[in-house]
Design a protein around this nucleic acid. Structure first.
Lengths: 206, 206
DNA sequence: CCCAGGAATTGAACTGAACTCAGGTTGATC
DNA sequence: GATCAACCTGAGTTCAGTTCAATTCCTGGG
């Protein structure tokens, strides 16, 4: 019922700065390993000031996850909107998923590493609101992929299979990359993107 | 250098009981969310007694992860040892990966949800030892899958592709299931197993 | 210009769960 | 039945996350 109302930025709000710093810290050091006070330092405020913007460290994390999920969904829609051919749509969606900045890579990683947070409910109101919103977006994204498969199957472009399950699998395959991928690593993202794109198409269309 | 020496069980050791209880707690409630003292209660000892067996809550977690990785590797070897045909070996490996008890499902989930722990090094000796051992086992398991693909490619059963990357992807696809699968959920594991088995074969062999 | 009021910030104090310490109990072995 | 190590405990410490009470900063209406 109560959706998240994105707090409109007062001119001297540091919310955005906090989110950016938090993504960097959480993404590189890990959520548990980074001290909330370190985020404050990096932004240039006292730790108590953080609580003006987020109810808790976890609330900040959940917000990051929700924003990333929103981004993923928007990107999927944008990428697939003008492809008639299901195979082309699938390819475009996969390519879009890997067309990300370094900062977005961190966000993805954070999201993947803390998916389990979305299961159990939270004590405080605002945390719970973010959690529910994120959970819903997970379902939206899953539906995005499932619908793509359903459409392809009904058009005869893909063999008939359990679209729900296959959609979850495709999505799982795509996001599994963010657990191990490092920009500094030996494999460039473009190469990964190509291999996964092919793999997804074979999984679904052959 | 210093491998883990599994502590031989004294007759009244509660190490095994602690590990079992911890897997249940961590798997169902989540590692962060479960209090270390709850594990003690479930075993029927005071919280301080836990420190006789594990240096820390995290040390226990890392041990669980290492044991699970060892199990995965052993199972892979066992499942593929007498398959000549690469496709059959692949199928057997996937089936083996999903032929697990409820308790093992929890272990898998715990492992998946805390892979990120294996990146950064730990302060204490014993924790670091477990971490390194686990990290190594991750590579062993990755090699298991990669080798299977390499063999299949060299035999001409699979088209030539980047085996390392494809291996990681196959593995990622398989384990991604443990994030969302629940024994109480609508989809039986057998159905998942079949779909993933097919998906892996198509990914690799077509 | 000023001052009302919300946004933003802070230092000091609180909380609770992980962990330490200094010792006590148990039980197998000689 | 003495010994020794494995096993256990209650009381106390630590430390990161959080709360509180109070202050400063800025903006917009009179």
């Amino acid at each position: 019922m109560t959706g998240i109302v994105e707090p409109e930025a007062g001119p001297r709000s540091k919310r955005a700065a906090i989110l950016t710093a938090a993504v960097d810290c959480f993404g590189e050091t890990g959520f548990e390993a980074t001290k909330w006070s370190t985020v404050a330092e990096r932004v240039g405020i006292g730790q108590t000031a953080l609580y003006h913007y987020f109810e808790s460290k976890t609330h900040c994390l959940l917000t990051i996850m929700r924003l990333e999920l929103q981004r993923s969904h928007d990107l999927f829609v944008e990428a697939t909107k003008d492809s008639e051919d299901p195979v082309e749509a699938l390819r475009a969606a996969v390519r879009a998923a890997y067309d990300v900045s370094a900062h977005e890579v961190l966000q993805m990683r954070i999201l993947q590493n803390h998916m389990d947070l979305l299961s159990g409910s939270r004590r405080s109101k605002r945390e719970e609101a973010e959690r529910v919103a994120a959970r819903q977006l997970v379902q939206v994204v899953e539906r995005d992929w499932t619908n793509l498969l359903v459409k392809g199957m009904s058009q005869g472009a893909f063999p008939l299979r359990d679209a729900q399950l296959l959609g979850a699998s495709v999505l799982g395959l795509i996001v599994s990359v963010w657990r191990w991928y490092r920009p500094s690593g030996p494999t460039p993202l473009s190469e990964i993107s190509e291999l996964i794109e092919g793999a997804c198409v074979r999984m679904v269309a052959s």
